[in-house]
Amino acid sequence: MEVFAVTIFVSLMFAVLFAALFVAERSQRRRSSLEQDALLPFDDMRSAPVRKNDPTIPPHQSPL
């Protein structure tokens, strides 16, 4: 019975936490600029590579 109680308790906590965070997220008007950092891995696609070894395949094109 101890396991069921723990499982139900933890699940309920998660459900409540989810609902609270969801409501908080929905009610927020302004988006943070932090999300812009998610584009950092793509910075090298904005600039062409320097001609040194002259790659036959540009990095933004899949070599597969």
Partner: peptide
């Protein structure tokens, strides 16, 4: 967090979630 966005060619779903 680095290679999956590169392979999928789109940024990570949520940067806030990653925090």
């Amino acid at each position: 967090y680095y290679f999956l966005p590169k392979a999928a060619e789109r940024p990570v779903y949520s940067y806030r979630l990653s925090i």
